[in-house]
C-alpha cells in the first residue's frame, strides 16, 4: 500500500543536551496561574542549555494544581519560529515542544539547515532524546521533502592526479 506522504528520517547528531532550567525572555508576558497558562509576546527566546527556540509568540501550558508542583508540559510557538541546537538550525511557521516527551514538532515551510546541506518539508519532528529528525512532506508536487546537499571536496593528490575516494592506501 503506497502511503500518500513522503517521510524522510534524518539521523541527527545524538541527543540534544537540555536541562530543566529554562530561561525565557520576551517583550510582554501574561500568566493566569489558576488556569495554568502563560503567554509570552514579542521577541520570545527560550534557552534550555543546547536548545534555543525563537518565535514571535509562545503559549506555555502547565500542570499541577498546587503552587508547589506546577511544571511546564508544553510550549506552543508561532510566528518566525527558529530552533537551533549545536548542529542544526530549523526554521518554520509554527511549533509545538512537548517538554515531557522531549519531542519538538515544527510545521509550515520547514527548512532544516545542517552542515551537510538544507532540507525542506511541510512538517518536522525532532526527538531530542535520540536526536532523530523525521521530516514529512505532502504528495503534492511542491509539498514533497526536498534536500540540497553539498558533497565533500575531493582531496587533491600531491602527484597531480585526483585521488579517488576508495583508493586509499
Amino acid at each position: 500500500q503506497v502511503t500518500t506522504e513522503t517521510t524522510t528520517q534524518v539521523a541527527g547528531n545524538g541527543p540534544v543536551d537540555i536541562s530543566r532550567d529554562v530561561y525565557i525572555s520576551s517583550n510582554d508576558w501574561e500568566a493566569n496561574l489558576k488556569k495554568n497558562i502563560a503567554v509570552y509576546i514579542g521577541d520570545v527566546v527560550v534557552k534550555q542549555k543546547d536548545l534555543t527556540l525563537y518565535s514571535d509568540r509562545m503559549t506555555v501550558f502547565f500542570q499541577g494544581s498546587e503552587a508547589a508542583d506546577k511544571t511546564i508540559t508544553r510550549l506552543d510557538v508561532s510566528g518566525g519560529v527558529k530552533l537551533t541546537t549545536k548542529n542544526e538550525t530549523i526554521e518554520s511557521t509554527w511549533g509545538i515542544y512537548d517538554v515531557e516527551e522531549k519531542i519538538v514538532t515544527l510545521g509550515g515551510n520547514v527548512l532544516l539547515k545542517a552542515e551537510e546541506g538544507e532540507t525542506r518539508s511541510e512538517r518536522l519532528t525532532y526527538d531530542l532524546d535520540s536526536g532523530v529528525i523525521t521530516m514529512q512532506g505532502k504528495p503534492t508536487k511542491d509539498g514533497r521533502v526536498t534536500g540540497k546537499f553539498t558533497l565533500p571536496e575531493k582531496k587533491k593528490d600531491p602527484s597531480g592526479g585526483t585521488e579517488k575516494q576508495n583508493d586509499r592506501p
Binding site: R20, D21, V22, Y23, I24, S25, S26, N27, D28, W29, E30, A31, N32, L33, K34, Y40, A68, D69, T71, I72
Partner: peptide
C-alpha cells in the same frame, strides 16, 4: 486574587522546576 500576572517590557523569566522540588 485571580493570580493573573501581566508584565511588560524586557520580561525575563527563569524557570527551574528542580529548584522547587
Amino acid at each position: 486574587d485571580q493570580e493573573i500576572i501581566r508584565l511588560k517590557g524586557n520580561v525575563l523569566h527563569h524557570y527551574n522546576p528542580d529548584k522547587f522540588t
